[in-house]
Design a binder for these strands. Structure first.
Lengths: 262, 262
DNA sequence: GCGCTTCTGTGTCCGTATTCACAGAACGGA
DNA sequence: TCCGTTCTGTGAATACGGACACAGAAGCGC
């Protein structure tokens, strides 16, 4: 039975894993402590803290680098900390016994995860994988309990955070239940675009995900997702290049998100 | 476009609505103020309040009766209060433009809803319908803000509540995305049974929902749901009578919930 | 008991999305 | 430049569930 699960996980991770090849990029991860983004700034959750408090927290939060493909947590290494994503991107996903996976979220820099711990929940069956090399700060459970949960300013932020999450999940659930794939694909492109890190300056926004990653978010197969995307591209609604999608015609995309008829 | 939406809602409510026929039951709703369940006891959210505080809140919470089929809130009458379900049952659901509905929850006595308001969210596209005659207390936004959000004891309960909700939603989302209908049906029977109000005394537990209501929770059609249930019944896993399901073989049901193969 | 309504059981047809199976394209590394 | 890997495109067969259409059963009101 454990074999089965492991096999499942392996395929959920995308088949044969290339843990091996060394990284190419100049590795902006190991920049010194003078990094402008010192874990806790830019994180909504801590927005109410004074600079001093922020600094105190930073000291408690050791950063660690995860290579692309590495698991930040899993069932084998369950969540014992609150994570803050300093750089890179993380994919949160769940896996069934059969080895199928659904991506719950793809997080960008500044995101907090492992938040379920904050509200007395376990992260059932959840995995977190670095889809790029990522630097992550961890706050231990003890520190979190001492400094965060007790702080009413933060407590209220936690509530809000959870509330947003509930709203997003309800939306996704109804979409999945009631809308055809093409419409869901359009919807997700819209929200991914909105969430996308504002490209360098001005526009140039683009969604940097592969079809497979998008499929994982949609709860659909890669092939079906590719088809939907190809269709949008053919209609000039989006433009694609390898691992990158740019929205050309937001209006048409919004229309495609509601009307079932393609 | 408004016509369309209204039509959609109507069918989501179950086709031709029987608002008309007067109720039959001896109406336990209009019992006097000495009702043992005075809105706020038995509600987790307020568990930390002292009897005096509880009493103070009760005074602020007028109860109202909703007849079966009535809408507690909708887009037309958006949420402006926190609701506490005193008796009866409420179905929370969402509707798409096309008039398809997904049930987010079916609430039993003691449940709190409209909680999104507590965390600064609107209830987008959400409706609440009484599926039985129900008595509901309402706490106005102002009171909620004054007495609940500011109270750290309650704030922490709110966080927990939202956390549970997130966990449930994530579970449902992955189920819907990755599991076949038969397995989802089994799963939902298990959780409905667990959540079912403990029948009179001892066991005798049973799920009091129609196939259509279950289908609404599953995000499937009534027919497909009926088939799955009929199959379970044929295999002796459950026993059905009109609007009521009893689990006969929990073990087999749990097995059916995981294995995709019938 | 009678009649209406709601609920449940099936049965057929059909459409969307999955599965499986390749082929070509893009990119990175040697 | 060549090679391997990862992505993307597409096609055929299949399956699961949806849509539609009834028929019988169970309650409820009268």
């Amino acid at each position: 039975m454990n074999d089965k699960r492991d096999k499942g996980l392996e395929s959920a991770l995308g088949g044969s894993r290339p843990w091996s090849p060394a990284q190419r990029e100049p590795d902006p991860l190991t920049t010194g402590p003078e990094d402008p983004f010192n874990c806790l700034n830019e994180v909504d959750l801590f927005a109410d803290l004074s600079p001093e408090e922020m600094h105190a927290m930073e000291i408690m939060a050791p950063a660690r680098v995860f290579r692309r493909g590495e698991l930040v947590f899993s069932q084998a290494q369950p969540v014992t900390a609150l994570f803050v994503l300093k750089s890179g991107r993380i994919r949160i996903f769940r896996v069934t016994e059969e080895g199928k996976a659904l991506t719950l979220a793809i997080l960008e820099r500044g995101a907090v995860f492992g938040e379920m711990m904050l509200v007395g929940q376990r992260m059932y069956d959840a995995y977190a994988e670095a889809i790029e090399d990522s630097a992550i700060c961890q706050l231990s459970v003890e520190d979190v309990e001492r400094y965060l949960i007790s702080d009413p300013r933060i407590a209220i932020r936690i509530s809000r955070l959870m509330g947003e999450q509930v709203a997003r999940l309800e939306e996704r659930l109804t979409d999945l239940a009631l809308r055809p794939l093409s419409a869901r694909t359009a919807s997700i492109l819209i929200s991914l675009d909105a969430a996308a890190p504002t490209g360098r300056f001005g526009q140039g926004r683009s969604i940097r995900l592969t079809h497979e990653q998008i499929a994982g978010l949609l709860g659909a197969t890669r092939e079906a997702t590719s088809k939907a995307l190809a269709d949008f591209a053919a209609r000039g609604i989006i433009r694609q290049s390898r691992g990158r999608i740019t929205i050309q015609n937001p209006t048409a995309l919004r229309a495609a998100a509601v009307s079932s008829g393609g």
